[in-house]
Simulated assay, not measured.
Amino acid sequence: MLKDLMMQFETASATYAADHSLERDDDWFVLKLQEEMGELIQIWNRVTGRGRRKGMTDTEMATALADETADVLGHVLLFAHRNGLDLAAAVERKWLFRPQE
């Protein structure tokens, strides 16, 4: 399951990059992860009253929080894929459970 999800993100990212003439070099993967973390923190600040709402409703903020969290998840999986990391083994080692493959 984790590998399948990783490959779905890889396919979507590669397609997006090709459509927009983006080069996904080694640095791109970690920099995009950092960018997405910044966007997650920005919406978190709004949700928790530390940032301006910019006219967003509670529903819009909840949706944006979910969307940015999905982006972070996707870019973590892309980074792991690019670097040949075995996330299932790392989860088992660090979190003490085996994710479904």
Score class of each variant (00 low, 15 high):
residue 40 L to V: 02
residue 56 M to L: 15
residue 60 E to L: 02
residue 72 V to G: 04
residue 44 W to E: 11
residue 72 V to N: 02
residue 69 T to W: 03
residue 47 V to I: 12
residue 85 L to Y: 11
residue 93 R to I: 04
residue 48 T to C: 11
residue 88 A to E: 15
residue 62 A to I: 07
residue 79 F to I: 04
residue 43 I to P: 01
residue 89 A to L: 13
residue 52 R to D: 15
residue 64 A to P: 00
residue 94 K to W: 13
residue 98 R to E: 10
residue 59 T to Q: 06
residue 79 F to N: 10
residue 70 A to W: 01
residue 66 A to D: 08
residue 89 A to D: 15
residue 59 T to H: 01
residue 75 H to G: 00
residue 76 V to F: 07
residue 83 N to Y: 12
residue 91 V to H: 05
residue 94 K to Q: 12
residue 81 H to S: 12
residue 54 K to D: 14
residue 95 W to R: 14
residue 87 L to Q: 00
residue 47 V to Y: 08
residue 52 R to G: 09
residue 51 G to Y: 06
residue 49 G to P: 08
residue 62 A to C: 07
residue 79 F to A: 13
residue 91 V to R: 07
residue 56 M to T: 10
residue 98 R to L: 09
residue 73 L to W: 02
residue 71 D to G: 09
residue 91 V to L: 04
residue 84 G to C: 03
residue 66 A to S: 09
residue 41 I to Q: 08
residue 97 F to V: 05
residue 54 K to N: 14
residue 97 F to A: 07
residue 86 D to Y: 09
residue 88 A to S: 12
residue 77 L to Q: 02
residue 44 W to R: 06
residue 95 W to T: 06
residue 70 A to I: 01
residue 64 A to D: 01
residue 76 V to A: 05
residue 55 G to W: 05
residue 94 K to N: 14
residue 80 A to E: 13
residue 59 T to F: 07
residue 55 G to Y: 08
residue 74 G to Y: 00
residue 49 G to R: 04
residue 66 A to N: 06
residue 75 H to F: 15
residue 55 G to T: 06
residue 65 L to Y: 12
residue 51 G to E: 06
